[in-house]
Design a protein around this nucleic acid. Structure first.
Lengths: 127, 127
DNA sequence: TTTATCTTTCCAATTTAATCGAAATATCTG
DNA sequence: CAGATATTTCGATTAAATTGGAAAGATAAA
């Protein structure tokens, strides 16, 4: 069953990924898989101070793009691939196609240059 | 021929879409299709002051998610669907799957909880 | 309980993003 | 050229994101 992501959630997810540091974290986690990495391991691999990493992990958590679980004194952060797939679904459905079977009421689809709107560019009535 | 987007470009595109205002603009443009909308038309539909819109359009342009063309004294902004599809491709390829045919050298894939890393949680050797 | 390890929170400094009135630029029309 | 329309740039302001040292909270081990 495909869940559709709300626009506000999509914006949160996009924002969470729109950072060099966070995208790097997320990609590492995706490569890693469900087992996840601890913050310590991530700081080692990304060479970023732990408070900074913690900040970015929280952003990813808020966007629900990662999950965390505790094991002993370690935390493990894992990617939420389902969430990611919902994001891709949102983008595909809303941002990649002319959707709506080709626009609303006052939207002329393809032919562009032909019968377009610009009131200025049309031949002036017999200059 | 499928072009692969570089990570820096993906970050720029994600950042460009990670804004309520810009996502709204972009979705309108996608629904509209290649003919595009003028800034005037967009300000009318989105009820945002023209300098603010102009700022957001520039962000979308910088990320190459839209293009613009001039016709007379109007500009028309259109969605760059190819770019958008490249972004979705990037996300799908790098952020949605365990990629790399399941991880690098020191990455144990699925079984998680079993033979995992945590040195602490394993049975202590005969407490 | 004390100590060591892991991770986060706190906080202050810095940087970057967003907003929008006013002014400037560009193009068309008369 | 002067006037009208379309759009952007400028500049000032406010808001939000990012960074990382120092301190605090959690958990485990000795």
């Amino acid at each position: 069953m495909i869940t559709i992501m709300k626009s506000g959630d999509a914006i949160a997810a996009l924002g969470a990924l729109a950072s060099e540091a966070r995208l790097a974290v997320f990609r590492l986690l995706v490569k890693r898989g469900p087992e996840g990495y601890t913050p310590t391991e991530l700081t080692r691999r990304l060479e970023v101070p732990s408070p900074t990493l913690s900040f970015h992990l929280r952003e990813l958590l808020n966007a629900r793009l990662v999950t965390s679980r505790r094991e002993g004194r370690n935390l493990f952060y894992s990617p939420n691939l389902e969430r990611m797939q919902q994001l891709v679904g949102f983008l595909t459905d809303n941002c990649c196609t002319l959707a709506d079977g080709a626009c609303g009421p006052d939207c002329r689809p393809l032919p562009a240059s032909a019968q377009a709107i610009p009131p200025a560019t049309r031949q002036r009535k017999r200059a």
